[in-house]
Amino acid sequence: MIVLGLDAAGAGCGVAVRRGGHVLAARTEPMAQGHAVRLMPLVLEVLAEAGVASGEIDLFGVTTGPGSFTGLRVGLAAVGGLALGAGRKIVGIPSFDAVLADLGPVTAGTVLVALDGRRAEPFARLFDAVGRPLGEPLCLPADELAALIPPGPLTVAGDGVGLVLSALAGRTDVGRAGPAAIDPATVARLAEERADQAREGPPPPLYVRPPDAVPLADRAPKP
């Protein structure tokens, strides 16, 4: 099976191609903006490096957020078009899951995955040591988030941990693990593992926080 994994929900664009469990090509480019301009050329470059045509891809995986509103929409639209052209299905991978999958074994305590939401409040989710969620995704100020974390060993991961470390300064049982950026090869691997969840068309995004832009029709009238 040939799988393309893509991440544009965070502060960059990442694309990877796997075949038979091996990564043929992968590349991640950090960027604060410009996802819409760079993503498709990056996809074509990675496909060329892998020696794979877009029509040969059997399955697509894409991060569904939370993250940058613009990058998230760009990524989902790009995968939607590629999958439609290839006549294939898509597996949506929550960004929290992609980070969690690269942590390695956690022996005890709680895991906090924090993603940079481009504001003072990170996107966050708590998990137990075996990766089971301890509640719904959150978007809270660091001090409020820290107050929700149970006592005991804590592992933090994700590109938003810098936003919460100061609020955890009083704890002596905090360890940081995993890469800061999401690995698109991990997205491809998780998509293959979850192929039974594949769907036609782009998966729904996980926003957590409402968008800044509100359609005129939905705005409350001024008194």
Results as ranks from 00 to 15, higher is better:
3 V>Y: 08
5 G>M: 14
7 D>P: 09
8 A>R: 11
10 G>I: 02
10 G>F: 08
10 G>E: 08
10 G>R: 13
11 A>H: 13
12 G>A: 07
12 G>M: 03
13 C>Q: 02
14 G>M: 03
15 V>A: 09
15 V>G: 07
16 A>C: 10
18 R>T: 11
18 R>M: 14
23 V>T: 15
24 L>R: 13
24 L>W: 05
24 L>F: 02
24 L>K: 08
33 Q>T: 13
35 H>E: 05
36 A>I: 11
36 A>E: 05
37 V>S: 09
38 R>Q: 13
41 P>E: 12
41 P>Y: 08
44 L>W: 09
49 E>W: 05
51 G>P: 03
52 V>G: 10
52 V>E: 09
54 S>N: 03
55 G>P: 13
56 E>H: 07
57 I>E: 10
60 F>M: 12
60 F>L: 13
61 G>K: 14
61 G>W: 13
65 G>Q: 11
65 G>P: 04
66 P>E: 08
68 S>M: 12
68 S>W: 08
70 T>G: 05
72 L>F: 05
73 R>C: 08
75 G>T: 10
76 L>W: 14
79 V>M: 11
80 G>F: 08
81 G>E: 15
82 L>R: 11
82 L>Y: 14
83 A>N: 14
88 R>Y: 14
89 K>A: 15
92 G>V: 15
93 I>E: 14
94 P>Y: 09
94 P>K: 15
96 F>V: 14
97 D>F: 05
98 A>C: 06
101 A>R: 15
102 D>V: 15
104 G>Y: 11
105 P>S: 11
106 V>D: 13
106 V>A: 10
107 T>W: 14
109 G>P: 04
109 G>T: 12
111 V>R: 10
112 L>S: 09
114 A>T: 03
115 L>D: 07
116 D>G: 03
116 D>W: 12
118 R>W: 11
119 R>W: 07
120 A>T: 12
120 A>Y: 02
121 E>M: 07
125 R>W: 07
128 D>Q: 13
129 A>N: 11
129 A>T: 12
131 G>I: 12
134 L>G: 02
134 L>V: 08
135 G>E: 03
135 G>Y: 06
137 P>I: 07
137 P>S: 03
146 A>G: 06
151 P>K: 05
156 V>Y: 01
157 A>W: 01
159 D>I: 04
160 G>Y: 02
161 V>F: 00
163 L>N: 00
165 L>C: 01
167 A>L: 01
167 A>P: 02
168 L>Q: 09
169 A>K: 13
172 T>G: 13
175 G>D: 10
178 G>Y: 00
179 P>R: 02
179 P>E: 04
181 A>G: 00
181 A>C: 02
182 I>V: 15
183 D>R: 08
184 P>M: 04
186 T>K: 04
187 V>H: 02
187 V>Y: 02
187 V>K: 05
188 A>H: 03
188 A>R: 06
190 L>V: 12
191 A>Q: 06
193 E>Q: 15
197 Q>G: 00
199 R>Q: 15
199 R>H: 06
200 E>G: 14
200 E>T: 15
200 E>M: 04
201 G>W: 05
202 P>C: 02
203 P>I: 10
203 P>D: 01
204 P>M: 03
204 P>W: 05
206 L>P: 11
207 Y>T: 10
208 V>E: 12
210 P>C: 04
214 V>Y: 00
216 L>M: 03
217 A>T: 01
218 D>S: 09
218 D>H: 06
219 R>D: 00
220 A>D: 00
221 P>N: 06
221 P>Y: 00
222 K>G: 01
223 P>E: 01
